[in-house]
Design a protein around this nucleic acid. Structure first.
Lengths: 337, 337
DNA sequence: TTGAAAGCGCTACCAC
DNA sequence: GTGGTAGCGCTTTCAA
């Protein structure tokens, strides 16, 4: 009656063997030289009863789950949310599902997540790694699981990655401010050792050094609000000479804008602003905020493409691929002198 | 040597039976009255070799995957991204993983997604449904799969849902404008039959009717940019009397703000603005924008809690639960007269 | 060209 | 208190 349909019930109903059904279903009819009529008979029947193979059983048998693990810093940040959308879309069209998690840059949590993902027999990984999971990522790779690192890289890790030209972008942003005539350019960043942050810092330092200017570097921790704003505020008060700022991330910039407003400073007259990572708010803000826009779509696309291509061929070739995408610099009102 | 560790290898190594190992591992030692020393022996060994049960095999056997399906309109929208974050976090702490997809309000895509999710043996669903999947959602429920609907409801669908008081929120927002002395209040919404949109519209209509004012309703389709802005712009130009607007969603409001700026109108002097669904931009915009804030955290929490509680007890009690959360009205500069 | 059957690793019923 | 074993549904080797 309502007997669960399975490959064996089909075989029984059709009076043929399970093997044959399986071959037909997996497109191996040709290869196994199964007669066309039989193939058609099976296909028609499968169609008719709307049979769907049990993917769990298949996964158990094959060891492939058709699931990709996506581990980002925080799925609710616009940057990662946009990437998640793109990745999911493409994966879906290739028969993969995505499971995701946010690390919040917490190493212990990330390790635990990786453990759970392994447990779920995830086929491949796209990871925005916190510092300190080098070993685990390498283990994954050694285990034959394709891994693509995003947004930042990890030293000594044999994985593909896709990032942007952080150093150069910030270098150019600082140069832009210099060309506009600003002399005391600050760089406000996270107190983080992550590669992308270090690279942005380097870009700033290089520009400042070349121009023979004084560096003003402030590292803050981000708490999503009040504290961060306070720190920026007091930094600005203690360094009255600062006439312009480069923010290392968009959320730091948002905190910064609040601080600037509270201090009663005008942009760009009193202080110019440039932010890394564009944000809808920057376009709409008065004045509009100059920013370094990351090619979100391209980042996601490259990452998922790399992963999918690794997933197709097994064993994956060991040659590690690094893709560095270019940001675009969007000049708006906040950096004009 | 490096033989894959499995429950049977443990049994063999320890010289006991598979059953015993399984019972111990599943916490049924007590129930099955297995001796404490044996339990300890097993646990220690498991610890030592760092054994992790194969969840695929377990799922195949039990029919439970410990995966929850999250289907939203668009994971990259801040509202849904925030919800995704909260849901994932809580699910994770309860041993569940989340797979997600975006429907883009596309019925065909949604049906296909549901198909894929069923195939993956997802244990439960959290869905932001487009119109037209009533049948499929009911099927899920009939199939014994817990479903929680979010953000909007579907008529004739026997599922739990969590929404906000859309009607009342917009009613109050319109009343606020009326109290501020505005006379020609427009409502700009999506041309959508989704329940939340219809409810917001009703709230507007009720307030306008009660006050004996003329309704100005504009339904636009959202394309993420230029077209939407144009439509709003021409609507405003054709209806010069309008002195205030309630936007049904935050992205419509963003388009509206651009249109208003282009038309050279000042907020709130020429035109007041209130938006449904708060957004960081509204707080920072000049002038700041009054909005109806949805309790994102609470929505996500209620949804995942309902789902988890259904997942715990089987068979789920059939009593459908509706949770309606309250929005908060944040008065800012854009609605002052 | 087709079929039998051995597992993938685990749970849980039934025996002792 | 503990162990044997029958599947969950599928893939794939080997035989016929």
């Amino acid at each position: 009656m309502s007997k669960r349909i399975s490959i064996s019930s089909i075989a029984k109903d059709l009076g043929i063997s399970i093997t044959t059904v399986s071959f037909v279903l997996n497109g191996k009819a040709q290869e196994k030289r199964i007669s066309d009529k039989l193939v058609k008979k099976v296909m028609d029947y499968v169609e008719k009863i709307d049979y769907k193979p049990n993917s769990l059983a298949r996964s158990l048998r094959t060891g492939k789950s058709n699931i990709i693990g996506l581990i980002v810093e925080d799925i609710s940040y616009p940057f990662f949310a946009a990437i998640a959308k793109e990745i999911e879309d493409k994966a879906y069209r290739n028969g993969y599902k995505i499971i995701y998690s946010s690390t919040e840059n917490n190493v212990a949590k990330t390790k635990e997540l990786l453990e759970m993902y392994k447990d779920k027999h995830v086929d491949g990984y796209i990871i925005v790694p916190p510092e300190g999971v080098e070993q685990e990522v390498n283990d994954l790779y050694a285990d034959g699981k394709p891994v693509v690192l995003l947004d930042r890289y990890l030293d000594g890790v044999e994985a593909d990655y896709v990032t942007v030209n952080n150093e150069d972008s910030v270098y150019k942003a600082a140069q832009h401010l210099i060309q506009q005539g600003f002399k005391n350019i600050a760089f406000i960043t996270l107190n983080s050792l992550q590669s992308q942050m270090q690279d942005r810092l380097s870009g700033y330092e290089r520009a400042i050094k070349e121009a023979g200017l004084i560096p003003y570097i402030k590292e803050v921790s981000y708490d999503g609000g009040e504290r961060t704003k306070k720190h920026i505020s007091s930094f600005l008060q203690r360094n009255r000479a600062i006439d312009s700022i480069v923010f290392a991330t968009n959320y730091l910039c948002v905190s910064g804008l609040k601080a600037i407003k509270e201090l009663g400073l005008r942009i760009p007259e009193h202080i110019a602003v440039v932010s890394f990572d564009d944000y809808e708010l920057f376009e709409m803000y008065a004045p509009s905020i100059t920013s370094i826009a990351q090619p979100t779509g391209a980042i996601a696309e490259q990452a998922i493409n790399m992963l999918l291509s690794r997933l197709k061929k097994s064993p994956p070739d060991k040659k590690k691929q690094d893709i560095v995408l270019q940001t675009s610099f969007i000049v708006r009102e906040s950096s004009k002198n």
